[in-house]
Write a protein that binds this DNA or RNA. Structure first.
Lengths: 355, 355
DNA sequence: TCCGAGATGGTAAACGTTTTCCACCTTCTA
DNA sequence: TAGAAGGTGGAAAACGTTTACCATCTCGGA
């Protein structure tokens, strides 16, 4: 079908070695006349080197695998773009795989991408289970984790301080005078979800407010899940004037559900999310949220991957970036109803609790 | 690093052929005792077949390439998911590449994925330029186009009737009594953008309303672009009571900008989008839009790819699906202010034109 | 007892590259 | 004029599989 290097060699009247030298631009010098004859033959036959064969010989494929849990959560495309930009500058292609938070699928993809199909692996997906990761590391496959990492495993990772982010979000609500703050968590199996829950607890405890399990629900990081948790809370008669969601998708779903129940946002209920996906600023009211430097995380993760690929220092490095609270309207702060000063002075207003 | 088939053979005391037979599950029978010895060796050494080598020999790699213009537009992840679900059931991995609407990047990726790195290619990205596509086809690479296809090129494609979708969106606005309808188009180079513009024109002309170029702006399919177009229209003093946007992202951007200018939605200006991305129903007001069957399109495209890969009938088939108007609040229809009947009877209300 | 048919498993040739040697020419220097 | 040095390009051995072909063994039937 496609021409092989052998046919080009025959057409140009040279050896395959010579053809290989001119098309792969190796250090070996080839005289100008031969080079031109080869190039002419290449053009005439429409030859493109077979990358699989090259990969077999050179032991590198020029592709890296990126495993994400859910490509329809805009958070991950944002990271992916950071990764891709760096990768494509380095001439690498990115093989993107979706696990839909399914560990079995993650394992399947892993064995598909196994060593040599891919030069390195970036995971944005891993839950608590780390067996396969350790195995990879033992086999010397370059791996970097991004956005999510299990605790206490020694691997390269680019993360955000989730606990601190959730704490700041909660503290912001506390400063605005809220005392009954609900929490929509992620799947309890995910470390990232547990960390955000911990941050929420930290803030409450620091303010001397007891953590009420009746105001905490487990979501699934999807909009519908966020709506479901809020619905359950309301049906159960839980009382809250504010909600912290463990990600923006759930926050947005929660807002939709709250509105369905006739609650005004942010007057009856304030909402804060996590991630700062593009749409956070486009929903109504614009969502106050804890921003993760998504593009930058992807960027850094891929740069680290490049180092690993280049045979640099292999002692794992954990990069923890700082999240940043972005105040928009969904928390009510911009309406100036409760000034931070007044609240800080202990004059927190009373809102009428939901339900 | 990783064990090779040769080492496994030595460890199990058999030939490489035997190992290959048991791990690749070929038709050739191997006795139970040998099979077990081999499997034991495989497990002991942590052997995984090198897919690159296998790909070289078998002439298939088990991966297909998916080239999309913009992964951060949720429209494409939705299609990707349809593709991936079918692909992964068939044991194929999907190599996803982003071109960011850049033809040069598209060409680069193409040459990276060139024959043998990938068994087939699904394009969701192609503009008017088809040279490289024809070339691919001539070389016998299975290609299927999804969501976007240049006119008059004979290739497999799964599309939506864009012209009709845009016409229906515009007609809906006309039925609601609007007479001054602006249009936010996509890049004029994209056939898909031109088709939607044509649909808008069709509707206006059928209603006997002249098409006013001053109410038409070219966007870029991004939210910011939609906002920019609306901003320019308003600054220019264009008069309109409704906007049709060539995609949801631009519609959402337009809504944001309209609000910045103090316009109430949908009372002052009605907005209709195209695509029905997830967030269309989550913004405020929920966006009336022309839904594309995204998941299904991906599904069908990948199924066609499977047929092509299976060596089935190679005469190109063009599948054109019907779009569906989804009425939400952004067009004002749900508020019942202008009944369809009254408007149809010629009693269309007058809204005060914008600016 | 012998022959043929299965069943089993080994040998070696691909697959399309890259790269290490090595050989041949020039050309320059002594 | 001989020898060295440097510039070119060819031969062939990998890379890790799969698979066509072949050899051997076992066993049942004549």
């Amino acid at each position: 079908m496609t021409a092989t290097i052998r046919e080009v060699a025959r057409a140009a009247g040279v050896s395959v070695a010579t053809v290989s030298r001119v098309v792969s631009g190796s250090a070996h010098r080839v005289s100008d006349p031969t080079r031109h004859r080869v190039l002419a033959a290449v053009a005439r036959l429409g030859y493109h080197p077979n990358l699989v064969a090259r990969g077999l010989k050179k032991r590198v494929t020029g592709t890296i695998g990126l495993i994400v849990p859910d490509i329809s959560n805009p958070f991950f495309p944002a990271i992916a773009r950071g990764i891709e930009d760096v990768a494509s500058r380095a001439g690498l292609a990115v093989l993107l795989c979706n696990t839909y938070e399914d560990l079995a699928k993650e394992r399947t993809y892993l064995s598909v991408l196994r060593k040599r199909m891919v030069d390195g692996l970036i995971f944005a997906t891993v839950g608590a289970n780390t067996g396969h990761l350790r195995m990879l590391r033992r086999q010397g496959v370059p791996v970097v984790l991004v956005a999510r990492a299990p605790d206490g495993v020694e691997m390269d990772a680019v993360l955000v301080d989730n606990r601190r982010g959730a704490r700041e979000a909660t503290e912001h609500l506390l400063r605005l005078g809220h005392r009954r703050i609900a929490f929509i968590g992620g799947p309890g199996t995910l470390p990232v979800a547990r960390e955000r829950l911990a941050g929420y607890r930290d803030a409450l405890q620091a303010a001397g407010i007891p953590v009420d399990p009746a105001r905490i629900g487990d979501g699934d990081f999807h909009a519908d899940g966020g709506a479901a948790v809020v619905g359950a809370l309301l049906r159960r008669g839980a009382a809250f004037t504010a909600v912290v969601a463990a990600n923006d998708l759930m926050a947005i779903g929660a807002m939709r559900e709250l509105r369905r129940w006739g609650r005004r946002l942010p007057d009856d209920v304030a909402v804060v999310g996590f991630d700062d996906i593009t749409f956070a600023s486009l929903v109504d009211p614009p969502l106050t949220t804890v921003a993760q430097p998504k593009y930058r995380m992807g960027h850094l993760a891929m740069e680290r991957m490049l180092e690993l690929l280049g045979g640099g220092d292999h002692t794992p490095r954990r990069l923890v970036l700082e999240p940043r609270l972005i105040v928009r309207d969904s928390c009510g702060a911009s309406r100036g109803r409760a000034s931070v000063g007044r609240v800080a002075a202990g004059a927190g207003r009373r809102r009428h609790p939901v339900s």
